[in-house]
Write a protein that binds this DNA or RNA. Structure first.
Lengths: 243, 243
DNA sequence: TTAATTTGTTGATTTACATCAATATTTGCC
DNA sequence: GGCAAATATTGATGTAAATCAACAAATTAA
Protein backbone atom coordinates (compact mmCIF):
# COMPACT_ATOMS: atom_id res chain seq x y z
CA UNK A 1 0.00 0.00 0.00
CA UNK A 2 1.34 3.41 -0.97
CA UNK A 3 2.21 5.83 1.76
CA UNK A 4 -0.44 8.25 0.66
CA UNK A 5 -3.24 5.78 0.32
CA UNK A 6 -5.57 5.64 3.22
CA UNK A 7 -8.37 3.20 3.58
CA UNK A 8 -11.68 4.91 3.34
CA UNK A 9 -14.82 4.65 5.39
CA UNK A 10 -18.23 6.03 4.54
CA UNK A 11 -18.25 9.75 5.11
CA UNK A 12 -14.76 9.55 6.48
CA UNK A 13 -13.94 13.13 5.68
CA UNK A 14 -17.35 14.62 6.38
CA UNK A 15 -17.01 18.21 7.34
CA UNK A 16 -13.34 18.45 6.54
CA UNK A 17 -11.80 20.30 3.66
CA UNK A 18 -8.32 18.93 3.92
CA UNK A 19 -8.99 15.34 3.18
CA UNK A 20 -10.45 14.31 -0.09
CA UNK A 21 -11.89 11.01 -1.11
CA UNK A 22 -10.38 9.44 -4.19
CA UNK A 23 -11.75 6.37 -5.84
CA UNK A 24 -8.79 4.11 -6.12
CA UNK A 25 -8.52 1.96 -9.19
CA UNK A 26 -5.47 0.22 -7.86
CA UNK A 27 -5.37 -3.43 -7.01
CA UNK A 28 -5.58 -2.60 -3.33
CA UNK A 29 -7.84 -4.84 -1.31
CA UNK A 30 -9.21 -1.69 0.26
CA UNK A 31 -12.62 -0.51 -0.80
CA UNK A 32 -11.31 2.97 -1.71
CA UNK A 33 -8.57 5.36 -0.83
CA UNK A 34 -7.85 8.86 0.38
CA UNK A 35 -5.11 11.22 -0.35
CA UNK A 36 -4.35 14.38 1.49
CA UNK A 37 -5.77 17.12 -0.65
CA UNK A 38 -5.41 20.83 -1.32
CA UNK A 39 -3.46 20.98 -4.53
CA UNK A 40 -0.30 18.99 -4.66
CA UNK A 41 1.74 21.15 -2.33
CA UNK A 42 -0.14 20.20 0.77
CA UNK A 43 -0.40 16.61 -0.29
CA UNK A 44 3.35 16.37 -0.60
CA UNK A 45 4.07 18.13 2.62
CA UNK A 46 1.40 16.71 4.83
CA UNK A 47 2.13 13.24 3.69
CA UNK A 48 5.50 13.52 5.29
CA UNK A 49 3.79 13.70 8.60
CA UNK A 50 2.06 10.38 8.17
CA UNK A 51 4.11 7.82 10.02
CA UNK A 52 3.01 4.99 7.80
CA UNK A 53 -0.17 3.85 6.19
CA UNK A 54 -3.23 3.65 8.40
CA UNK A 55 -2.99 1.01 11.07
CA UNK A 56 -5.67 -1.56 11.59
CA UNK A 57 -6.85 -2.39 15.10
CA UNK A 58 -9.04 -5.16 16.37
CA UNK A 59 -11.94 -4.24 18.61
CA UNK A 60 -10.66 -3.39 22.11
CA UNK A 61 -7.11 -3.06 20.83
CA UNK A 62 -5.10 -0.28 22.44
CA UNK A 63 -3.86 2.48 20.15
CA UNK A 64 -2.24 4.66 22.81
CA UNK A 65 -1.61 4.00 26.46
CA UNK A 66 -2.21 6.65 29.09
CA UNK A 67 1.12 8.33 29.69
CA UNK A 68 2.56 7.59 26.25
CA UNK A 69 4.54 10.52 24.85
CA UNK A 70 2.27 12.78 22.81
CA UNK A 71 4.45 12.57 19.70
CA UNK A 72 1.65 11.55 17.41
CA UNK A 73 -1.88 12.64 16.88
CA UNK A 74 -4.49 10.60 15.12
CA UNK A 75 -7.28 10.47 12.63
CA UNK A 76 -9.97 7.84 12.54
CA UNK A 77 -10.31 6.47 9.05
CA UNK A 78 -12.80 3.71 9.78
CA UNK A 79 -14.57 2.38 12.86
CA UNK A 80 -15.07 3.97 16.24
CA UNK A 81 -12.29 4.92 18.63
CA UNK A 82 -12.76 5.59 22.33
CA UNK A 83 -10.59 7.66 24.65
CA UNK A 84 -10.64 6.65 28.26
CA UNK A 85 -9.22 6.84 31.71
CA UNK A 86 -9.24 3.87 34.05
CA UNK A 87 -9.26 4.53 37.78
CA UNK A 88 -7.66 2.55 40.61
CA UNK A 89 -10.88 0.81 41.55
CA UNK A 90 -11.19 -0.45 38.00
CA UNK A 91 -13.97 1.87 36.87
CA UNK A 92 -13.47 3.45 33.49
CA UNK A 93 -14.57 6.77 32.04
CA UNK A 94 -14.88 7.17 28.29
CA UNK A 95 -14.31 10.85 27.63
CA UNK A 96 -15.18 10.69 23.93
CA UNK A 97 -15.90 8.47 20.99
CA UNK A 98 -14.35 9.43 17.68
CA UNK A 99 -15.95 8.74 14.32
CA UNK A 100 -14.31 8.53 10.89
CA UNK A 101 -12.76 11.79 9.73
CA UNK A 102 -12.07 13.08 13.21
CA UNK A 103 -8.64 14.24 14.19
CA UNK A 104 -7.94 13.70 17.87
CA UNK A 105 -5.22 13.55 20.49
CA UNK A 106 -3.99 17.09 19.92
CA UNK A 107 -2.67 18.36 23.22
CA UNK A 108 -0.39 20.97 24.71
CA UNK A 109 1.05 18.43 27.11
CA UNK A 110 3.99 16.10 26.74
CA UNK A 111 2.07 12.92 27.48
CA UNK A 112 -1.32 11.66 26.46
CA UNK A 113 -3.59 11.92 29.50
CA UNK A 114 -6.03 9.35 28.14
CA UNK A 115 -5.66 5.94 26.61
CA UNK A 116 -7.02 5.44 23.13
CA UNK A 117 -8.67 2.18 22.11
CA UNK A 118 -10.58 0.73 19.23
CA UNK A 119 -14.26 0.47 20.22
CA UNK A 120 -14.86 -1.46 16.99
CA UNK A 121 -12.40 -2.81 14.46
CA UNK A 122 -10.79 0.39 13.30
CA UNK A 123 -8.33 2.00 10.94
CA UNK A 124 -6.33 4.88 12.33
CA UNK A 125 -3.91 7.28 10.70
CA UNK A 126 -0.92 8.59 12.68
CA UNK A 127 0.48 12.09 12.24
CA UNK A 128 3.76 13.12 13.70
CA UNK A 129 2.99 16.08 15.91
CA UNK A 130 6.16 18.00 15.16
CA UNK A 131 5.79 17.53 11.42
CA UNK A 132 2.16 18.57 11.45
CA UNK A 133 3.07 21.66 13.46
CA UNK A 134 5.77 22.72 11.07
CA UNK A 135 3.48 22.22 8.09
CA UNK A 136 0.85 24.27 9.90
CA UNK A 137 3.38 27.06 10.35
CA UNK A 138 3.73 27.32 6.56
CA UNK A 139 0.26 26.36 5.43
CA UNK A 140 -2.61 28.49 6.53
CA UNK A 141 -5.07 25.76 5.65
CA UNK A 142 -3.39 23.17 7.80
CA UNK A 143 -3.31 25.57 10.74
CA UNK A 144 -7.00 26.22 10.19
CA UNK A 145 -7.71 22.53 10.06
CA UNK A 146 -6.01 21.99 13.40
CA UNK A 147 -7.96 24.82 14.97
CA UNK A 148 -11.23 23.67 13.47
CA UNK A 149 -10.69 20.09 14.62
CA UNK A 150 -9.84 21.20 18.12
CA UNK A 151 -12.79 23.57 18.26
CA UNK A 152 -15.12 20.79 17.13
CA UNK A 153 -13.79 18.45 19.78
CA UNK A 154 -14.27 21.19 22.35
CA UNK A 155 -17.86 21.75 21.28
CA UNK A 156 -18.67 18.05 21.50
CA UNK A 157 -17.20 17.61 24.95
CA UNK A 158 -18.89 20.76 26.21
CA UNK A 159 -22.17 19.26 25.08
CA UNK A 160 -21.26 16.02 26.82
CA UNK A 161 -20.27 17.74 30.04
CA UNK A 162 -23.80 19.15 30.32
CA UNK A 163 -24.89 15.62 31.24
CA UNK A 164 -23.07 15.66 34.59
CA UNK A 165 -26.18 16.50 36.57
CA UNK A 166 -28.89 15.02 34.38
CA UNK A 167 -31.13 11.95 34.50
CA UNK A 168 -30.34 8.63 32.90
CA UNK A 169 -33.15 9.21 30.38
CA UNK A 170 -31.64 12.52 29.34
CA UNK A 171 -28.15 11.07 29.04
CA UNK A 172 -29.26 8.19 26.86
CA UNK A 173 -31.45 10.39 24.65
CA UNK A 174 -28.56 12.80 24.19
CA UNK A 175 -26.24 9.97 23.29
CA UNK A 176 -28.58 8.44 20.73
CA UNK A 177 -29.26 11.75 19.00
CA UNK A 178 -25.59 12.67 18.93
CA UNK A 179 -24.47 9.30 17.64
CA UNK A 180 -27.16 9.26 15.00
CA UNK A 181 -26.11 12.69 13.76
CA UNK A 182 -22.46 11.72 13.65
CA UNK A 183 -22.83 8.27 12.11
CA UNK A 184 -25.73 8.54 9.72
CA UNK A 185 -28.65 10.85 10.27
CA UNK A 186 -30.97 8.95 7.96
CA UNK A 187 -30.85 5.22 8.40
CA UNK A 188 -31.45 3.02 11.43
CA UNK A 189 -28.93 3.54 14.18
CA UNK A 190 -26.61 0.58 14.48
CA UNK A 191 -24.88 1.02 17.82
CA UNK A 192 -21.26 0.32 17.02
CA UNK A 193 -20.15 -0.01 20.64
CA UNK A 194 -21.19 -2.20 23.55
CA UNK A 195 -23.59 -1.15 26.29
CA UNK A 196 -20.62 -1.24 28.64
CA UNK A 197 -18.92 1.41 26.51
CA UNK A 198 -22.07 3.51 26.42
CA UNK A 199 -22.47 3.18 30.19
CA UNK A 200 -18.86 4.22 30.80
CA UNK A 201 -19.34 7.21 28.51
CA UNK A 202 -22.57 8.35 30.17
CA UNK A 203 -21.55 7.63 33.74
CA UNK A 204 -24.27 5.01 34.19
CA UNK A 205 -24.32 1.28 34.90
CA UNK A 206 -25.01 -1.11 32.02
CA UNK A 207 -28.23 -2.08 33.76
CA UNK A 208 -29.44 1.50 33.78
CA UNK A 209 -28.52 1.92 30.12
CA UNK A 210 -30.53 -1.16 29.27
CA UNK A 211 -33.51 -0.17 31.39
CA UNK A 212 -33.51 3.35 29.98
CA UNK A 213 -33.50 2.12 26.39
CA UNK A 214 -36.42 -0.13 27.29
CA UNK A 215 -38.21 2.84 28.83
CA UNK A 216 -37.67 4.97 25.73
CA UNK A 217 -39.02 2.14 23.62
CA UNK A 218 -42.15 1.80 25.79
CA UNK A 219 -42.72 5.53 25.31
CA UNK A 220 -42.45 4.95 21.53
CA UNK A 221 -39.56 7.38 21.14
CA UNK A 222 -37.38 4.64 19.75
CA UNK A 223 -37.82 1.12 18.47
CA UNK A 224 -35.40 -1.74 18.96
CA UNK A 225 -34.95 -3.96 15.94
CA UNK A 226 -32.27 -5.86 17.80
CA UNK A 227 -30.12 -5.16 20.87
CA UNK A 228 -27.73 -3.14 18.73
CA UNK A 229 -30.12 -1.70 16.13
CA UNK A 230 -32.34 1.17 17.09
CA UNK A 231 -34.72 3.33 15.10
CA UNK A 232 -35.26 6.85 16.38
CA UNK A 233 -39.04 7.07 15.94
CA UNK A 234 -39.49 10.53 17.39
CA UNK A 235 -36.42 12.70 17.28
CA UNK A 236 -38.31 15.83 18.30
CA UNK A 237 -39.54 14.18 21.47
CA UNK A 238 -36.05 12.82 22.17
CA UNK A 239 -34.62 16.30 21.75
CA UNK A 240 -37.25 17.69 24.10
CA UNK A 241 -35.91 15.44 26.86
CA UNK A 242 -32.65 17.39 26.73
CA UNK A 243 -34.10 20.77 27.67
CA UNK B 1 -8.30 55.02 29.65
CA UNK B 2 -6.47 54.36 26.41
CA UNK B 3 -7.81 51.77 24.04
CA UNK B 4 -4.81 49.57 24.52
CA UNK B 5 -4.72 49.69 28.24
CA UNK B 6 -6.27 46.79 29.96
CA UNK B 7 -6.72 46.48 33.66
CA UNK B 8 -4.48 43.85 35.07
CA UNK B 9 -5.03 41.09 37.54
CA UNK B 10 -2.40 39.03 39.26
CA UNK B 11 -0.96 36.52 36.84
CA UNK B 12 -3.43 37.67 34.22
CA UNK B 13 -1.35 36.52 31.31
CA UNK B 14 0.11 33.44 32.94
CA UNK B 15 1.08 30.96 30.31
CA UNK B 16 0.42 33.27 27.42
CA UNK B 17 3.02 34.84 25.17
CA UNK B 18 0.81 37.29 23.40
CA UNK B 19 -0.09 39.46 26.30
CA UNK B 20 2.50 41.28 28.20
CA UNK B 21 2.26 43.01 31.50
CA UNK B 22 3.33 46.62 31.53
CA UNK B 23 3.64 48.67 34.63
CA UNK B 24 1.64 51.74 33.90
CA UNK B 25 2.83 55.02 35.27
CA UNK B 26 -0.27 56.80 34.08
CA UNK B 27 -2.75 58.39 36.42
CA UNK B 28 -5.13 55.52 35.88
CA UNK B 29 -6.90 54.30 38.97
CA UNK B 30 -6.09 50.79 37.82
CA UNK B 31 -3.37 48.91 39.64
CA UNK B 32 -1.47 48.26 36.40
CA UNK B 33 -2.02 47.85 32.69
CA UNK B 34 -1.58 45.47 29.81
CA UNK B 35 -0.87 46.07 26.22
CA UNK B 36 -1.07 43.56 23.44
CA UNK B 37 2.50 42.57 22.82
CA UNK B 38 4.72 41.06 20.13
CA UNK B 39 6.49 44.06 18.72
CA UNK B 40 4.39 46.95 17.65
CA UNK B 41 2.91 45.32 14.58
CA UNK B 42 0.76 42.90 16.46
CA UNK B 43 -0.16 45.47 19.03
CA UNK B 44 -1.44 47.76 16.33
CA UNK B 45 -3.30 45.09 14.48
CA UNK B 46 -4.73 43.14 17.33
CA UNK B 47 -5.90 46.25 19.02
CA UNK B 48 -8.24 46.82 16.14
CA UNK B 49 -10.05 43.71 17.19
CA UNK B 50 -10.73 44.99 20.64
CA UNK B 51 -14.22 46.39 20.63
CA UNK B 52 -13.45 48.89 23.33
CA UNK B 53 -11.55 48.91 26.56
CA UNK B 54 -12.25 46.07 28.93
CA UNK B 55 -15.77 46.05 30.27
CA UNK B 56 -16.50 45.87 33.94
CA UNK B 57 -19.22 43.55 35.19
CA UNK B 58 -20.82 43.27 38.58
CA UNK B 59 -21.07 39.85 40.15
CA UNK B 60 -23.83 37.82 38.45
CA UNK B 61 -23.94 40.24 35.54
CA UNK B 62 -24.51 38.65 32.15
CA UNK B 63 -21.78 39.08 29.58
CA UNK B 64 -23.32 36.98 26.82
CA UNK B 65 -26.75 35.41 26.57
CA UNK B 66 -27.24 31.91 25.26
CA UNK B 67 -28.07 32.25 21.57
CA UNK B 68 -26.29 35.57 21.08
CA UNK B 69 -24.43 35.75 17.78
CA UNK B 70 -20.86 34.53 18.21
CA UNK B 71 -19.35 37.74 16.82
CA UNK B 72 -17.06 38.32 19.75
CA UNK B 73 -14.81 36.19 21.83
CA UNK B 74 -13.51 37.14 25.21
CA UNK B 75 -10.63 37.31 27.58
CA UNK B 76 -10.90 37.53 31.32
CA UNK B 77 -8.74 40.34 32.62
CA UNK B 78 -9.81 40.22 36.24
CA UNK B 79 -12.25 38.18 38.29
CA UNK B 80 -13.90 34.88 37.53
CA UNK B 81 -16.28 34.26 34.66
CA UNK B 82 -18.68 31.32 34.42
CA UNK B 83 -20.21 29.77 31.31
CA UNK B 84 -23.53 28.07 31.81
CA UNK B 85 -26.63 26.54 30.42
CA UNK B 86 -29.97 26.81 32.16
CA UNK B 87 -32.54 24.09 31.56
CA UNK B 88 -36.31 24.32 31.40
CA UNK B 89 -36.78 23.11 34.96
CA UNK B 90 -34.55 25.92 36.18
CA UNK B 91 -31.49 23.81 36.95
CA UNK B 92 -28.23 25.25 35.74
CA UNK B 93 -25.00 23.64 34.62
CA UNK B 94 -21.74 25.58 34.79
CA UNK B 95 -19.55 24.13 32.06
CA UNK B 96 -16.46 26.08 33.03
CA UNK B 97 -15.02 28.85 35.12
CA UNK B 98 -12.50 31.14 33.48
CA UNK B 99 -9.65 32.81 35.33
CA UNK B 100 -7.67 35.92 34.34
CA UNK B 101 -5.68 35.52 31.16
CA UNK B 102 -8.00 32.95 29.62
CA UNK B 103 -9.42 33.45 26.18
CA UNK B 104 -12.82 31.82 25.80
CA UNK B 105 -15.93 31.68 23.65
CA UNK B 106 -14.15 30.59 20.51
CA UNK B 107 -16.55 28.44 18.52
CA UNK B 108 -17.21 27.15 15.03
CA UNK B 109 -20.89 27.89 15.41
CA UNK B 110 -22.87 31.01 14.61
CA UNK B 111 -24.35 31.42 18.06
CA UNK B 112 -22.97 31.05 21.54
CA UNK B 113 -24.36 27.83 22.98
CA UNK B 114 -23.72 28.95 26.55
CA UNK B 115 -24.40 32.09 28.47
CA UNK B 116 -21.45 33.87 30.04
CA UNK B 117 -21.72 35.56 33.40
CA UNK B 118 -19.51 37.22 35.94
CA UNK B 119 -19.07 34.87 38.90
CA UNK B 120 -17.32 37.70 40.74
CA UNK B 121 -16.94 41.34 39.80
CA UNK B 122 -14.98 41.01 36.59
CA UNK B 123 -13.20 42.80 33.80
CA UNK B 124 -13.57 41.28 30.35
CA UNK B 125 -11.95 42.14 27.06
CA UNK B 126 -13.92 41.67 23.82
CA UNK B 127 -12.34 40.62 20.54
CA UNK B 128 -14.17 40.80 17.29
CA UNK B 129 -14.09 37.29 15.93
CA UNK B 130 -13.69 38.24 12.28
CA UNK B 131 -10.89 40.70 13.05
CA UNK B 132 -9.05 38.20 15.20
CA UNK B 133 -9.38 35.60 12.46
CA UNK B 134 -7.95 37.86 9.82
CA UNK B 135 -5.06 38.84 12.06
CA UNK B 136 -4.47 35.15 12.74
CA UNK B 137 -4.30 34.54 9.00
CA UNK B 138 -1.36 36.96 8.74
CA UNK B 139 0.30 36.45 12.09
CA UNK B 140 1.57 33.04 12.94
CA UNK B 141 1.76 33.93 16.60
CA UNK B 142 -1.85 34.93 16.81
CA UNK B 143 -2.94 31.73 15.09
CA UNK B 144 -0.84 29.79 17.57
CA UNK B 145 -2.35 31.68 20.44
CA UNK B 146 -5.84 30.77 19.31
CA UNK B 147 -4.90 27.12 18.96
CA UNK B 148 -3.12 27.06 22.32
CA UNK B 149 -6.04 28.71 24.09
CA UNK B 150 -8.51 26.29 22.55
CA UNK B 151 -6.33 23.29 23.36
CA UNK B 152 -6.02 24.44 26.96
CA UNK B 153 -9.76 24.84 27.28
CA UNK B 154 -10.19 21.37 25.81
CA UNK B 155 -7.76 19.88 28.30
CA UNK B 156 -9.52 21.48 31.23
CA UNK B 157 -12.97 20.34 30.22
CA UNK B 158 -11.72 16.83 29.50
CA UNK B 159 -10.43 16.73 33.04
CA UNK B 160 -13.77 18.01 34.28
CA UNK B 161 -15.75 15.50 32.26
CA UNK B 162 -13.97 12.69 34.11
CA UNK B 163 -16.11 13.62 37.12
CA UNK B 164 -19.35 12.45 35.52
CA UNK B 165 -19.34 9.11 37.32
CA UNK B 166 -17.44 9.99 40.45
CA UNK B 167 -18.29 10.55 44.11
CA UNK B 168 -19.02 13.91 45.68
CA UNK B 169 -15.75 13.70 47.61
CA UNK B 170 -13.77 13.18 44.44
CA UNK B 171 -15.56 16.01 42.64
CA UNK B 172 -14.91 18.49 45.41
CA UNK B 173 -11.28 17.44 45.84
CA UNK B 174 -10.73 17.78 42.10
CA UNK B 175 -12.31 21.22 42.12
CA UNK B 176 -10.25 22.51 45.02
CA UNK B 177 -6.96 21.29 43.56
CA UNK B 178 -7.76 22.66 40.13
CA UNK B 179 -8.88 26.02 41.44
CA UNK B 180 -5.86 26.33 43.70
CA UNK B 181 -3.53 25.61 40.78
CA UNK B 182 -5.27 28.14 38.57
CA UNK B 183 -5.70 30.94 41.07
CA UNK B 184 -2.65 30.76 43.27
CA UNK B 185 -0.83 27.58 44.09
CA UNK B 186 0.84 28.92 47.19
CA UNK B 187 -1.44 30.94 49.40
CA UNK B 188 -4.70 30.03 51.08
CA UNK B 189 -7.50 29.29 48.68
CA UNK B 190 -10.06 32.04 48.71
CA UNK B 191 -13.07 30.58 46.93
CA UNK B 192 -14.10 33.35 44.59
CA UNK B 193 -17.50 31.88 43.74
CA UNK B 194 -20.53 30.82 45.79
CA UNK B 195 -21.23 27.26 46.87
CA UNK B 196 -24.20 27.38 44.51
CA UNK B 197 -21.81 28.01 41.62
CA UNK B 198 -19.53 25.21 42.77
CA UNK B 199 -22.50 22.88 43.10
CA UNK B 200 -23.76 23.71 39.61
CA UNK B 201 -20.29 23.12 38.23
CA UNK B 202 -19.83 19.77 39.94
CA UNK B 203 -23.35 18.48 39.44
CA UNK B 204 -24.04 18.38 43.18
CA UNK B 205 -26.46 20.15 45.51
CA UNK B 206 -25.18 22.99 47.67
CA UNK B 207 -25.87 20.84 50.72
CA UNK B 208 -23.65 18.08 49.42
CA UNK B 209 -20.89 20.56 48.59
CA UNK B 210 -21.06 21.89 52.13
CA UNK B 211 -21.15 18.46 53.75
CA UNK B 212 -18.27 17.25 51.61
CA UNK B 213 -16.09 20.19 52.53
CA UNK B 214 -16.90 19.48 56.17
CA UNK B 215 -15.95 15.85 55.65
CA UNK B 216 -12.63 16.79 54.06
CA UNK B 217 -11.94 19.08 56.98
CA UNK B 218 -12.70 16.34 59.51
CA UNK B 219 -10.22 14.14 57.65
CA UNK B 220 -7.65 16.95 57.97
CA UNK B 221 -7.15 17.25 54.23
CA UNK B 222 -8.23 20.86 54.32
CA UNK B 223 -8.88 23.51 56.91
CA UNK B 224 -11.58 26.13 56.80
CA UNK B 225 -10.50 29.56 57.96
CA UNK B 226 -13.89 30.93 56.99
CA UNK B 227 -16.71 29.72 54.74
CA UNK B 228 -14.87 31.02 51.71
CA UNK B 229 -11.27 30.58 52.77
CA UNK B 230 -9.76 27.14 52.67
CA UNK B 231 -6.25 25.88 53.26
CA UNK B 232 -5.26 22.73 51.42
CA UNK B 233 -3.46 20.94 54.26
CA UNK B 234 -2.65 17.75 52.38
CA UNK B 235 -2.56 18.11 48.63
CA UNK B 236 -1.09 14.67 48.09
CA UNK B 237 -3.97 13.04 49.94
CA UNK B 238 -6.44 15.20 48.03
CA UNK B 239 -4.86 14.14 44.75
CA UNK B 240 -5.04 10.51 45.82
CA UNK B 241 -8.83 10.79 46.05
CA UNK B 242 -8.90 11.41 42.31
CA UNK B 243 -7.41 8.07 41.28
C1' DT C 1 -25.44 -27.66 14.17
C1' DT C 2 -24.46 -27.48 19.25
C1' DA C 3 -21.76 -25.86 23.03
C1' DA C 4 -19.34 -22.15 25.17
C1' DT C 5 -18.77 -17.45 25.94
C1' DT C 6 -19.98 -12.89 25.77
C1' DT C 7 -23.37 -9.41 25.96
C1' DG C 8 -27.80 -7.71 27.26
C1' DT C 9 -32.25 -7.76 30.09
C1' DT C 10 -35.11 -7.73 34.10
C1' DG C 11 -36.08 -7.96 39.14
C1' DA C 12 -34.87 -7.16 44.30
C1' DT C 13 -32.30 -4.56 47.41
C1' DT C 14 -29.04 -1.01 48.84
C1' DT C 15 -26.97 3.47 48.77
C1' DA C 16 -25.25 8.02 47.74
C1' DC C 17 -26.97 12.04 47.06
C1' DA C 18 -31.20 15.13 46.44
C1' DT C 19 -34.74 17.38 48.66
C1' DC C 20 -37.08 19.40 52.45
C1' DA C 21 -36.57 21.89 56.70
C1' DA C 22 -34.51 24.57 60.31
C1' DT C 23 -30.76 27.22 61.96
C1' DA C 24 -26.30 29.67 61.71
C1' DT C 25 -23.11 32.63 59.58
C1' DT C 26 -21.59 36.09 56.49
C1' DT C 27 -22.19 40.08 53.67
C1' DG C 28 -24.04 44.31 52.43
C1' DC C 29 -26.45 48.47 53.56
C1' DC C 30 -28.36 52.36 56.28
C1' DG D 1 -22.45 49.77 64.62
C1' DG D 2 -26.97 47.14 63.86
C1' DC D 3 -30.47 45.32 60.78
C1' DA D 4 -31.76 42.82 56.52
C1' DA D 5 -30.69 39.80 52.97
C1' DA D 6 -27.96 36.43 51.13
C1' DT D 7 -25.24 32.50 51.76
C1' DA D 8 -23.75 28.41 54.21
C1' DT D 9 -24.37 24.50 57.53
C1' DT D 10 -26.54 20.60 59.58
C1' DG D 11 -30.28 17.19 60.23
C1' DA D 12 -34.34 14.16 58.60
C1' DT D 13 -36.41 11.91 54.85
C1' DG D 14 -37.08 10.53 49.92
C1' DT D 15 -35.50 8.78 45.49
C1' DA D 16 -32.87 7.71 41.22
C1' DA D 17 -29.61 4.90 40.06
C1' DA D 18 -26.02 1.41 41.75
C1' DT D 19 -25.35 -3.12 43.03
C1' DC D 20 -26.47 -7.87 43.48
C1' DA D 21 -28.61 -11.71 41.32
C1' DA D 22 -30.70 -14.60 37.91
C1' DC D 23 -31.77 -15.36 33.36
C1' DA D 24 -32.04 -14.55 28.15
C1' DA D 25 -30.21 -13.52 23.81
C1' DA D 26 -26.55 -13.04 20.71
C1' DT D 27 -22.09 -14.10 19.15
C1' DT D 28 -18.16 -17.09 18.61
C1' DA D 29 -15.96 -21.47 18.56
C1' DA D 30 -15.96 -26.30 17.80
Amino acid sequence: MSEIEVVKASKAAKGHRLFHKVVSGSGSSLPGAFILEDGQKLAKRAVLSVRRGPIRYRRNGTIVYEGDPADYIFMVVDGIVRRCKTFQNGTRAIVAFHTPGELFGWTDEVKHALSTEAATDALVLFFKRSALLSVAAREQKVANFLLTSTTGELRRIQEHSLLINRSAKCRVASFLLDLSARIDEMSDLDLPMSHQDIADHLGLSIETVSRTITELERACLIERLSARTIVLRNRAALARILN
